[in-house]
Write a protein that binds this DNA or RNA. Structure first.
Lengths: 219, 219
DNA sequence: AGATGTGAAGCGGTTCACAGCT
DNA sequence: AGCTGTGAACCGCTTCACATCT
């Protein structure tokens, strides 16, 4: 059924496809039906050569002398990213962060549907957040069973994150977004991405320090 | 005053120093005063060769046949990352995410101090979040003036993020952590890192799709 | 003329493998 | 004997530069 057998798309390219997608969505609101690699690059914050190389991995969807057809390329990238279907998402941990994530407008709009909120704090069970009822951690399996492979979001303290990850994997979740500041070990067929506030701040601290050193007295 | 003139530390290494820092903090709670690259690698989720190469950029702080002195290396990495001083942080945008960030325990604990919460919604001004009063966007300059170069966190909608970035830069902020789904342009002496939920989900969607394709019928 | 698509060169980062130190 | 520190090989990604097509 696939249009093209699984080409190999470099990881670095996959990471940028969402940038192009966003840039194209914006461009689609404008009046030009096509866009050049130059302009697409500008909107996505990368350089034009990279755009052309990246898009060439998807196949040839541009026209020489003209540019890329915005709508056509949008469809192509959405298909490539698997955004033509809705993915079920389960959020584990309904603290401050879990709340903020659940209320994030952009799940539904972008093809992700929150099918479950789960927590292990009895006082939170039954509470309704963003229109979804919080259920006990033990019911994780029920929450994601029968759906397409779900995406799990870990928004718990670090201490329980590995346990949660194990449960997610056992429940059949095949991708995990980890907000807990800890290294997770999962089977190799499960994808994990992490978002770690402390790391981001510490890296910025490094450059901040360099900045103030070089900016300071040159004697 | 610097112990060593600015060596060049590769970006990839800088990005991993926080991982080593965390692993070392955990190791320091154990009973071994030293740790091998092998064990440090395991805790940080990388491989041993990388650990040794990375640490070699900081200088020689290991002992052959023994390993690295945990406390010594902790100090060294903290110094390198600029975590021996407190950095002021200002959060712009006090919506769901801003709230969650402000309440994040780990700012103070890790050497970051929230010196300001700022929003442009009049109904939020004066509200107190995590012990800090929300002030109008216009007062951004006052909030960060007189401090060391601050770190700005953008937790606003995408539409106003560039304006906020411009104001942060004008106020003297030298590093920005951007949670808004948009490309920012800033002067080259300002560091920007971004955290983008939609991108993370879309990348996971890509691998999720690959997973279900290859996992499905092989006919 | 104008912009894509792509070999080839260049670059940074990872991994190997072992010399060197304790 | 054990583990670090590091040159060298390797690998993937980025950038260049231009042939190719509309």
């Amino acid at each position: 059924m696939s249009v093209d057998p699984l080409r190999h798309i470099p990881e670095a390219t996959v990471n940028r496809l969402p940038l192009y997608l966003r840039a194209l969505v914006e461009a689609a609101e404008g009046k030009h039906p096509t866009i050049s690699s130059e302009r697409l690059a500008e909107r996505a914050g990368v350089n034009a050569a990279k755009v052309r190389k990246d898009l060439s991995f998807l196949g040839s969807y541009g026209t020489r002398g003209v540019g890329y057809d915005v709508e056509g390329l949008l469809f192509q990238i959405r298909t490539e990213l698997g955004l033509t279907q809705d993915w079920p998402v389960v959020i584990v941990g309904v603290g401050n962060l879990g709340h903020a994530l659940a209320n994030y407008r952009g799940f539904g709009a972008r093809g992700f549907e929150i099918v479950g909120l789960v927590d292990n704090d009895p006082s939170k069970i039954g509470e309704e957040v963003a229109g979804v009822e919080v259920r006990p951690l033990e019911e994780l399996g029920d929450v994601v069973s029968g759906t397409s492979p779900a995406i799990g979001i870990i928004a718990t303290p670090a201490a329980v994150a590995q346990d949660v990850a194990d449960r997610l994997v056992a429940a059949g979740v095949s991708s995990i977004l980890n907000f807990a500041p800890t290294v997770l070990s999962v089977p190799s067929n499960v994808s994990v991405r992490k978002v770690d506030l402390a790391i981001e701040l510490q890296v910025l601290s490094f450059y901040n320090q360099r900045q103030s050193e070089t900016g300071a007295a040159a004697g």
